[in-house]
């Protein structure tokens, strides 16, 4: 009884606050346009319809946008985590001259918001002939993923005991071998944390994808939906909400299976 009061009741309150918009998405997905505006009880679907879902999947390029987003999110995650891992390793374990400066510079990189950057960045993208090329988003997203991931991995690597690699070094292992064979396996929880973080941020990115991609075939979920389902002052609410829900699915799956690693990895990197 006490447990109910101390855990489930407050948890339910949080649940209501955090999940209410998703309940609304779910309801809107299955409501006809008419019922959305005229209903005796907004929390119920009286005349359900699947038409929004089928329209979304058959009359728009949703599946392609979804595929594009998935590609960009996965690729930028892999790139960023890899780059961040070797950077963090270099900073923490190799202690080359200037490593302190590099680590500070990377933190500072985090404070630059995309809203400032996109016009000057566009000039560069054009010069590189990267405009409207889907893969171009991968290095672009890395600009905001690498600083955070590097910070996280620096924290994580710091807490891995040095004895391990010193033993390997005695056995004649090179730095590269230590980087790959010794530290990498131990760093996996930290890497998963970084990966989940990166995946989430790149999955949701909007501004760069809007500005740097043009063709319908290169749009991501957020951009495709807002650019093709908002028609002037008429919003295709049912399709928009259905697309939002379907768009959350991959992330929710990732979290369901990896949330423990995520927490463990993060925990490892913030330990004193």
């Amino acid at each position: 009884m006490l447990r109910l009061l101390k855990i489930y009741v407050p948890l339910a309150l949080f649940g209501v606050f955090l999940l209410l918009p998703f309940l609304w998405m779910l309801l809107t997905t299955f409501k006809s346009n008419q019922e959305l505006l005229n209903t005796p009880n907004p929390f119920w679907v009286f005349h359900g319809t699947f038409s929004h879902v089928t329209d979304l999947l058959t009359q728009t390029a949703y599946l392609q946008w979804f595929g594009n987003t998935l590609f960009v999110a996965v690729a930028s995650t892999v790139l960023s985590v890899f780059v961040s891992y070797i950077t963090a390793y270099a900073i923490i374990r190799l202690r080359f001259p200037g490593s302190e400066v590099v680590s500070t510079a990377i933190f500072l990189a985090y404070i630059v918001p995309p809203a400032i950057l996109f016009i000057p960045l566009a000039t560069i993208i054009i010069q590189l002939h990267w405009f409207d090329k889907l893969w171009a988003l991968v290095p672009i997203y890395a600009t905001f993923l690498v600083p955070f991931c590097t910070w996280l991995l620096i924290g994580f690597l710091k807490n891995i005991p040095r004895e391990l690699e010193e033993a390997a070094r005695v056995d004649g292992a090179s730095n590269i071998a230590i980087l790959w064979r010794i530290i990498f396996p131990i760093a996996v929880p930290g890497l998963i944390s970084a990966a989940i973080f990166s995946f989430t941020l790149s999955w949701n990115e909007y501004l760069y994808a809007l500005v740097f991609m043009s063709s319908s075939g290169n749009k991501t979920v957020s951009v495709g939906m807002t650019s093709e389902l908002i028609r002037g002052d008429v919003f295709q609410w049912g399709q928009l909400m259905a697309g939002a829900l379907i768009g959350v699915l991959p992330a929710i799956l990732v979290y369901f299976f990896f949330v423990e690693y995520y927490v463990a990895g993060l925990s490892g990197s913030v330990k004193e």
Binding site: P21, F22, W24, M25, T28, T200, W203, N204, Y206, V221, S222, M225, T226, F235, W237, L240, M241, G243, A244, G247, V248, A251, I252, Y255
Partner: peptide
């Protein structure tokens, strides 16, 4: 996790 633009619409 949800795309901000879309949850803002909700």
């Amino acid at each position: 996790v949800a795309p901000t633009v879309l949850s803002a619409l909700a």
